[in-house]
């Protein structure tokens, strides 16, 4: 059962977090293997969440000790003895400074081989941090992952890895590549764009007509109107002469839909070889609290 005090869901690089109302992502750093998120509310940084995926089994006590040592070095807040257990695989440590107290939490997800560390950047309730630690989730390398950040929301099959997300005023754009079975080479790319002011962007054109303005001059497209929006399947002669000689072509597939309630238009652009991704639009139910694999978050 999701915690009603943590209604905001942020899912990034295989780590799903639940956050209090009004919290948002202020910065993303790193990649699937290791990185961190900076979370803020009204321009005030509140929390730093970092993750690391390793083959060896992580040791929770060692992770907490390392995190508190870093906090002590950077803020002067010394860790109080012991830690509050959050489930069988998580814990929260309080760090006491001269005038403030912050908390550090950690949780290891043994199935996913992932360790996540939460570090408060401003004094706040340790119990709130414990609730966030308890409500989090992480997936392993070969599992489908939910992605939910800056208004983008989708669930991707395994081996899709994000190269980054860009959040500008009125535009959110994220790029993923697929590394099949963890190989070094990529075979497919996905770009999701979410634009504000859909009415102004389309300027009276249909989605199909608007999407066609973005095509290459030598690209041919067939459009289909679907229940959720429009699908545009595009082909053009391959950019590489070797592939052209072999009669291959470059394939792209667009899906676009309008979110009337928020006046946003979302464009999903897929390119590569093999079977194209289906439409990633999530229905109203999927925008809610259910995690992608049906597991409870607590």
């Amino acid at each position: 059962m999701p915690d009603p005090l943590l209604p905001v869901i942020v899912a990034w690089q295989g780590v799903t977090l639940r956050l209090p109302q009004g919290w948002e992502v202020a910065g993303t750093y790193g990649n699937w293997q290791a990185g961190h998120l900076l979370l803020a509310r009204e321009r005030a940084p509140l929390l730093r969440v970092s993750w690391e995926r390793r083959r060896e089994q992580p040791d929770l006590n060692r992770t907490l000790a390392k995190a508190t040592k870093r906090v002590a070095r950077e803020t002067g807040c010394a860790a109080l003895p012991g830690h509050e257990a959050v489930g069988p695989d998580g814990g929260v440590v309080r760090c006491q400074g001269r005038s403030s107290e912050i908390a550090v939490g950690a949780r290891r997800f043994a199935d996913a081989g992932t360790t996540v560390v939460w570090r408060q950047l401003a004094p706040a309730s340790p119990s709130e941090l414990a609730a966030m630690v308890s409500a989090s989730d992480a997936v392993g390398d070969n599992a489908p992952a939910e992605w939910r950040i800056h208004g983008l929301a989708c669930t991707l099959p395994p081996w899709w890895r994000s190269e980054g997300v860009q959040a500008l005023a009125g535009l959110t754009r994220a790029v993923w590549f697929r590394y099949p079975q963890g190989r070094r080479g990529t075979d497919q790319v996905l770009v999701l764009r979410r634009l504000a002011c859909a009415g102004r962007v389309l300027a009276g054109r249909t989605l199909d007509a608007w999407l066609r303005t973005t095509l290459h001059p030598n690209e041919t497209a067939t459009a289909e109107t679907l229940e959720h929006g429009v699908r545009l399947s595009c082909t053009r002669p391959a950019a590489n002469w070797w592939r052209r000689w072999r009669g291959r072509s470059d394939v792209r597939q667009f899906h676009a839909w309008i979110d009337e309630a928020e006046d946003r238009v979302t464009v999903q652009e897929w390119a590569g070889g093999g079977e194209p991704l289906g439409c990633l639009r999530q229905g109203p139910l999927a925008q809610g609290s259910r995690l992608f694999n049906g597991r409870s978050s607590a």
């Binding site: 948002e24 208004g151 500008l168 005023a169 009125g170 504000a196 002011c197 928020e262 006046d263």
Partner: peptide, 15 residues
Amino acid sequence: HLRLSRREAETALAD
């Protein structure tokens, strides 16, 4: 007016 988030509006105004 534009149905933007607060953060987006602040960024746009700043620019």
